[in-house]
């Protein structure tokens, strides 16, 4: 590839994302019309399609700040961080951190966490399909008390926990027709678990302790470590109740004991 060729797409690419750049040279129109007007079609297609992709992922954020503000904010994100993957389902991964540091959105302090929750739901929707471990198998393993402290719980790939300083689930739920937005006190802390059961994504508000417990074992902690951390954060944490909840939600896909990597997945 020649240097001249290389510069063709470089110049085109630069001008696509930066409206301050002039229309790239070397363009031709059959009727002698200004190529800038035609180049603007590409510029518009790129920005609008990428802003649309973000709007699809973050509908509640858009509703919270209004569509014009959301799209203007998304436009800045697109220009600064165009996607590096062709798979746009996950383009929003860096958006919550961007929102957190976007000065014009500072008056809506919970916006970044609502974006985190929406991205978690997107990730959960597309997470790998893994069958939960059958309840009898889990019950059998939990009945061997000697193994219990060293057990590592493997959660379904869709499971994630958000410990927010804000009532992030209540804010989200109010936009799904569950309760009134005006009745939500946004500054109350909430821990939320997102998971997919079958084809449906759920968000569930958790007590502080079980939120920590799940976060711990997602990170690979042994049961005893996860339990200690949960109890330290929440004196009301009860291991038996927590394990019952995990069974109820069908979160557990494997139980491994200690570091022998012995797997129980059948």
């Amino acid at each position: 590839m020649s240097a001249a060729m290389h510069s063709t797409q470089s110049g085109f690419a630069r001008a696509l994302l930066d409206p301050a750049q002039a229309c790239p040279g070397g363009l031709h129109t059959w009727n002698g019309s200004d190529p800038a007007r035609r180049f603007a079609v590409y510029r518009n297609n790129v920005t609008v399609s990428l802003v649309d992709a973000l709007a699809d992922t973050f509908p509640v954020c858009s509703a919270l700040v209004g569509e014009p503000f959301f799209r203007a904010m998304a436009r800045v994100f697109v220009a600064e961080r165009p996607p590096q993957s062709r798979v746009l389902a996950f383009y929003g991964r860096d958006f919550p951190a961007f929102v957190e540091d976007f000065p014009p959105a500072a008056s809506v302090p919970y916006l970044a966490d609502v974006a985190r929750l929406e991205m978690m739901r997107q990730e959960a929707c597309h997470a790998a399909d893994v069958e939960p471990l059958a309840a009898e198998v889990i019950a059998g393993l939990l009945a061997a008390p000697a193994q219990l402290p060293a057990l590592r719980i493997h959660a379904h790939p869709s499971v994630a926990v958000l410990n927010s300083r804000y009532a992030v689930h209540s804010l989200w739920a109010a936009h799904q027709g569950e309760g009134e937005l005006a009745a939500v006190a946004p500054m109350l802390a909430q821990a939320v678990m997102v998971l997919r059961v079958g084809l449906d994504v759920h968000s569930i508000v958790l007590a502080r302790g079980i939120g920590v417990f799940i976060e711990q074992f997602i990170q690979g902690a042994e049961l005893v470590v996860a339990q200690q951390a949960a109890t330290a954060s929440d004196p009301d944490f009860d291991l038996v109740t927590a394990l019952g909840s995990l069974l109820h939600w069908q979160i557990i896909t494997a139980l491994r004991t200690g570091d022998d990597d012995h797997e129980h997945t059948d």
Binding site: M1, S2, M5, T8, Q9, S10, F12, A13, L16, L17, G26, Y42, N45, V46, S49, L50, A53, P82, P83, Q84, S85, R86, L88
Partner: peptide, 22 residues
């Protein structure tokens, strides 16, 4: 068409000059 340049993906079908190199 082309739709990416370096690490950036533009999500649009962009035009090409029709040359021997292309």
């Amino acid at each position: 068409a082309w739709s990416s340049h370096g690490e950036a993906f533009f999500n649009d079908l962009l035009p090409l000059p029709y040359t021997a190199a292309t």
